[in-house]
Design a protein around this nucleic acid. Structure first.
Length: 518
RNA sequence: GCGCCCGUAGCUCAGUUGGUAGAGCACUCCCCUUUUAAGGGAGUUGUCAUGAGUUCGAGCCUCAUCGGGCGUGCCA
C-alpha cells in the first residue's frame, strides 16, 4: 500500500481521521479553526488555517468523504481591553464588555468592530486562496442554530459545573456560570452567578449588578452566550466538528472541553497540538507585545510559498520566528521545488511541495539562491530589479527573463531588502581632490561612450583613468568609487555596475555626489 | 510545587522505525579577477546539556540532575 509510505504529519493526521470515520455514519468531515476578532489576523491564525488545510488536502487524497473547513469567529465574546492599535479608542472604551459584534467599528466602515475584523480575516484568507466557510458566532447564536447545543448544556448543567469548578480559583468559583447573560439594558456580557435554573421555560435567573435587580433570560437565540470552554464543546457538538488543532497554550482548555463534549453526548474532534512561535529571544510571540514578525513583514521580503513552507515544517516544535529565517526558508523552498520533479511518485506526497505548490510550475536556475540575490542586492546599489537582472544575465548569459518569473519576483524582494536594510546604513565620504578629478574624467568618458559598450570596455576605461592619475595603489581608485559614490567599502565590478545601472544614471549619480560635497 | 516541550559545530537549525554525527552561515586556502566577488572548488569545527540504566550498539528508549520556555489565576 502506498499509504504506509505517507509519513509526513498531515498524512498522519489524515489517517487518524480515516480511523474515526471507520465506525461512523457521518457523511462529511468537518475541519474547524477558531479566531478571536478583537484584533487583526496574525501569523498564528494564518498558521492554523494553513496547517488545517494541509491535513484536509491529505484527507481528500486518502478518502472520498467530502470535507469542508469552518473558520469560526468568536465575535460574540465580550471585549475586555481597548486594543492599542486602533483609532477612536474612546468609542471602544465606552463599549467595553459588550459582544464584539455590538461594538461600533472604530474604523467607521462596518456595522461593528467584529465585522470589520472578520472582513479583514476573510480578505486575508482569500488572499491565500484558502477553501473555507466563514462562521460568525453571533449569527449562530442569534439565528437559533446553537439552541440544540445550548439546551444540552442546560440539561447537564450540574455535571458540567462539576467538571469546571475544580479547575477554577476560589474567587472565580463564586461567580462562575457556563451561561453568560447579555444585559438587556446595557448590552454587556455579564459574568454573574446563576441563582436558579427555570427548567420548564429554559431560562436562567441571576442578579444583574448593572440594573441592581434580579432578572432572567432565555438561554436561546443569543440572549446569553456560553463561557469559552463550554462554548467550544457546544460548538463541536452542534457543528459536528471532526478535526481541530490548537496551540499548546490551549491544552488545558481542550481537555476540559473534551470532557464537556462527552457529557452532552458528543464526540470531540481529532486534535493536534502545535507549538507556539517564539521571538528572537525565545519568548512567546504575542500580539500585544508586538515581538516577532507578522505575515505582512514576511511577505515584504519573500513570497507566500516560503511562508507556507515555514508553517509546514515541524509544527510540533517551537520555532523562532525572526527575520533571518526568511532567506533560509526561501532557499529551502527553491531547493525543494527543483528537486520535486525528479522524486519518485510515491515520494512526492512526502514533500512539502505537494502541499504548498503541487503544480510546481515556476522554478529557478539551480545555481542562484535567494541568499545570493540578497548579497548581490547589498553590494550593487539595487534600486530596481533591472539592475540585479543585469548582473545575473551577465553571469548566466543564456537565461531568459520571461521564463524566470519566480526569479524576477525574488529580485524584487532583493530590492526591498536593499532599501530597508542597506540603504539607510550607507555612509558616504567626501572625495579627495585627486579623486574629484578622476570622477570628472569618468563623467566625460561616460558621456562620450556608446550605450552598446560591453562591461569589459567600460572597465578598461575606468582602469585607464586610474592609471593616468597615478594612484599609488590602483585599488584605492576603485575603493573611492564605492566609498564616495555608493556609500560602502566594497562593491561590484565597476564595468558591470555602470553597464547595468546605466551610463546616464551613473553620470547623474556622479554629478550628484560631486555637488553634494560639503 | 506540579504538568508538557526543548537543550546537537562559533551562529541558526536538520537528524526519519536505535546502526559510523549533518546542512546553511561564519572561518581558512585555492580558482576566477585590469579594484572586487555576488560565483566555483577544497578544508577546519562537536564530551549530541550532565550522570546513570536498557541494548551487541543510544543524539534517538528509561530514570535522575542542571539550564531555558510554556501552561498551571482571569480572559480567549
Amino acid at each position: 500500500m502506498v499509504e504506509n509510505n505517507l509519513k509526513v504529519w498531515p498524512f498522519i493526521e489524515a489517517k487518524k481521521l480515516l480511523k474515526r470515520f471507520e465506525n461512523s455514519k457521518k457523511k462529511e468531515c468537518i475541519f474547524q479553526t477558531g479566531y478571536g476578532p478583537s484584533g487583526l489576523p496574525h501569523i498564528g491564525t494564518f498558521g492554523e488555517v494553513l496547517r488545517t488545510t494541509m491535513v484536509m488536502k491529505a484527507f481528500r487524497y486518502l478518502s472520498d468523504i467530502p470535507s469542508k473547513l469552518f473558520v469560526f469567529s468568536d465575535d460574540m465574546d465580550g471585549l475586555r481591553k481597548v486594543p492599542q492599535n486602533i483609532p477612536n479608542q474612546n468609542l471602544i472604551k465606552e463599549n467595553l464588555e459588550k459582544p464584539l459584534s455590538s461594538i461600533p467599528d472604530p474604523f467607521g466602515k462596518f456595522k461593528s468592530f467584529s465585522e470589520h475584523n472578520n472582513n479583514k480575516l476573510i480578505d486575508f484568507l482569500k488572499g491565500f486562496e484558502f477553501d473555507f466557510i466563514f462562521k460568525s458566532s453571533t449569527e449562530q447564536y442569534k439565528s437559533g442554530k446553537f439552541n440544540e447545543g445550548l439546551e444540552a448544556i442546560f440539561d447537564n448543567y450540574e455535571d458540567i459545573c462539576n467538571v469546571i469548578l475544580p479547575t477554577l480559583g476560589k474567587d472565580r468559583r463564586e461567580t462562575y456560570s457556563p451561561f453568560l447573560p447579555i444585559c438587556k439594558s446595557s448590552g454587556k456580557v455579564l459574568q454573574v452567578k446563576v441563582k436558579e435554573l427555570n427548567k420548564s421555560l429554559k431560562k436562567i435567573v441571576y442578579f444583574n449588578p448593572i440594573t441592581n435587580s434580579e432578572e432572567d433570560c432565555s438561554i436561546f437565540n443569543g440572549e446569553c452566550k456560553l463561557q469559552w470552554k463550554v462554548d467550544w464543546a457546544m460548538r463541536w457538538y452542534v457543528l459536528g466538528i471532526d478535526y481541530e488543532m490548537n496551540g499548546k497554550d490551549l491544552i488545558e482548555s481542550y481537555i476540559l472541553s473534551n470532557k464537556i463534549t462527552k457529557i452532552i453526548g458528543g464526540r470531540s474532534p481529532v486534535n493536534y497540538t502545535y507549538e507556539l512561535f517564539l521571538d528572537e529571544k525565545g519568548e512567546k510571540i504575542s500580539k500585544s507585545i508586538g515581538n516577532g514578525i507578522s505575515v505582512d513583514d514576511w511577505l515584504r521580503f519573500s513570497n507566500k510559498k516560503s511562508l507556507e513552507l515555514f508553517m509546514f515544517q515541524n509544527p510540533s516544535r517551537a520555532k523562532r520566528l525572526f527575520f533571518d529565517i526568511i532567506p533560509k526558508t526561501t532557499d529551502e523552498l527553491l531547493k525543494l521545488k527543483n528537486d520535486y520533479e525528479n522524486l519518485p511518485k510515491e515520494q512526492k506526497f512526502n514533500s512539502p511541495i505537494w502541499f504548498i505548490d503541487e503544480k510546481n510550475e515556476e522554478k529557478t536556475p539551480e545555481k542562484i539562491s535567494f541568499n545570493m540575490i540578497l548579497n548581490l542586492a547589498s553590494v550593487c546599489n539595487a534600486e530596481s530589479s533591472e539592475i540585479l537582472w543585469g548582473f545575473i544575465e551577465n553571469y548566466y548569459p543564456k537565461i531568459v527573463k520571461e521564463d524566470n518569473k519566480l526569479l524576477n519576483e525574488l529580485l524584487g524582494y532583493g530590492v526591498v531588502f536593499y532599501k530597508e536594510f542597506i540603504l539607510p546604513n550607507k555612509k558616504y565620504r567626501n572625495p579627495s581632490d585627486k579623486e574629484k578629478i578622476g570622477f570628472k574624467k569618468l563623467i566625460e568618458v561616460l558621456e562620450t561612450s556608446s550605450t552598446d559598450e560591453e562591461p569589459e570596455e567600460i572597465q578598461t576605461k575606468i582602469y585607464e583613468i586610474g592609471m593616468s592619475l597615478k594612484f599609488e595603489n590602483l585599488k584605492d581608485w576603485f575603493s573611492a568609487f564605492y566609498q564616495v559614490i555608493l556609500g560602502q567599502d566594497q562593491g561590484p565590478r565597476l564595468g558591470s555596475f555602470i553597464k547595468f545601472y546605466g551610463l546616464k544614471k551613473t553620470i547623474l549619480l556622479l554629478e550628484e555626489k560631486l555637488s553634494d560635497e560639503k
